[in-house]
Simulated scan of single mutants.
Amino acid sequence: MTSAHPSDLPYPTCAQCAGIGIYAGPEWQYDLDDDLGFLVLKALIMAHGGREMHVLHRQPETATAPLDRAQAWLLARFGPGKMMIHLGPLARKNRVAWLIYIMLRDGASLAEIAAATNTHTRTISRHRKRLQDMGALPAPAPSNTRRT
């Protein structure tokens, strides 16, 4: 999809993904984002995303580190055991879609966006149409030219 280094792409929150109509993982990730903040969710996904993790039976007495806070939240929500940590908003396709949205919103050309995301202009056009249809981007101005 893109050859850009993963850290070069912006990180959207769950709410930002929902705002542009893309799937950002299971509902509990939205709740964790709302309850503890995106930095805690990001730390959890960066550490365990795309893999199964074990929610511990006991938590540290002081959960101040982001991963400790996430672990305590998961224990309270689901109890101990194994669970899959989805990449959610940090998935490469979501980060590329977010960058496309940002650049379209800021008025970049299709060619500039395609170069920045290492995708084809057709991909950018498809995203633009989807975003316009859902109201995330303004609809194109009607053309005054007449064809005969």
Rank of each mutant, 00 (worst) to 15 (best):
M1Q: 10
T2N: 00
S3H: 10
H5M: 04
P6I: 10
D8H: 04
P10V: 02
P10G: 07
Y11D: 11
P12I: 06
T13F: 01
T13W: 03
C14Q: 00
A15C: 01
Q16L: 12
C17M: 11
A18L: 15
A18F: 05
I20V: 08
G21P: 06
G21V: 02
I22F: 08
I22M: 09
Y23M: 05
Y23W: 14
G25S: 04
G25E: 08
G25Q: 03
P26A: 14
E27H: 12
E27G: 12
Q29I: 12
Y30C: 02
D34N: 09
D34S: 13
D34L: 12
G37W: 02
L39N: 11
V40K: 07
L41I: 10
L41T: 04
K42I: 00
K42S: 13
A43M: 01
L44D: 09
I45P: 02
I45F: 07
H48I: 00
H48Y: 15
H48N: 12
H48L: 03
G49R: 06
G49H: 05
R51W: 09
E52Y: 07
E52W: 04
V55A: 07
V55R: 02
L56S: 13
L56D: 11
Q59H: 10
P60M: 03
E61R: 12
A63E: 14
T64H: 09
A65L: 09
P66K: 05
P66W: 03
L67K: 08
L67M: 10
R69W: 00
Q71P: 03
Q71W: 10
L74Y: 04
L74C: 14
L75C: 13
A76N: 14
R77E: 15
R77C: 09
R77P: 00
F78C: 05
K82C: 02
P89C: 10
P89W: 04
N94K: 12
R95G: 07
R95W: 07
V96E: 01
W98M: 14
M103P: 01
M103I: 02
L104R: 06
L104H: 05
D106L: 11
G107L: 08
G107T: 06
A108Q: 14
A108I: 00
A108R: 15
S109C: 04
A111W: 01
I113K: 11
I113A: 06
I113F: 08
A115H: 09
T117D: 00
T119N: 05
T119L: 14
H120P: 00
T123L: 11
I124M: 09
S125N: 10
H127G: 01
K129G: 03
R130D: 02
R130E: 05
Q132R: 15
D133Q: 14
M134S: 14
A136E: 06
A136G: 10
A139P: 02
P140L: 14
A141G: 01
P142H: 10
